[in-house]
Amino acid sequence: MKLTIENITKTFKDKSALNDINLELTTGVYGILGANGSGKTTLMRILASVMKPSSGRVLMNGQDIADMNEKYRELIGYLPQHVGYYKNFSAEKFLKYIAALKGLPKEETSEKVEEVIELVGLTEYRSKKIGGFSGGMKRRVGIAQALLNNPKILIVDEPTAGLDPKERIRFRNLLSKISTNRIVLLSTHIVSDIEFIAKEVLILKDGQLVKKETPQSLLKGIEDKVWTLVIEEKEIPRFQSEYKVGNIARVEDRFQLRILSDEQPEPNAENDIPNLEDLYLYYFDEEETA
């Protein structure tokens, strides 16, 4: 199974959201990392066939998805960043309705709905109205609807945005569990979401694909660029203005700074092992991450 993205460009009036993206995706989890406005959602929407590219095409096993039409839509499961849901529907009724929209045979619907409800851990809330669900529970309903048709391609856009840490961990584990034998595309700006489950990380910046590598090789690329340095409090602003500063931790009466820099910032700065958060900081400016 292969999803090929060929020269995809998307422009909105005079603003370019994606610029000549070329990619090839096979089975496994791909984490799309990028700041707000980097083009993650636009790329996801194009892959979910809810948006048409301005130019370029997407091929599924060599066939243009625009020609495949509903045959392609039968293969995908999509969870957009913003979903409203029908608040008066119970989780079960909602999923049964979506099963109908996905063209699932009626005789399979109940069993499949049962299966996904159990998978996302909503069995005891199945008859409750979605309107009364927490953000995390709604997201779980969202992933359940995406999985109803046993999709070959699963596209989830910022699935952990707005979730508390416990729900985020639960969601991450769920994604990890369901990622076998399919292409999973997961966009996020929370690096810990993809750190341990992504086969490859795609870094998007200003609508361009900056990197597509395994997390290990991406980290290797910045292994001599992460520094720690213990300084006085009054020196912090200087380092913040001159370097990309990550974590700031208090060490007794001084402060330890984690700095991203191609060169050693100070003679007493020590090289440290990079993590994906460092990588994110290396590619994106601090103000973009806000």
Binding site: A48, V50, G84, Y86
Partner: peptide
């Protein structure tokens, strides 16, 4: 209803797409 409930984007990705629904 689907547009007002914020379901339109999701429905566009289904086999029976938004306009068919």
């Amino acid at each position: 209803k689907s547009r007002n409930a914020g379901m339109a984007e999701l429905e566009m990705s289904y086999k029976y797409n938004f306009q068919e629904i």
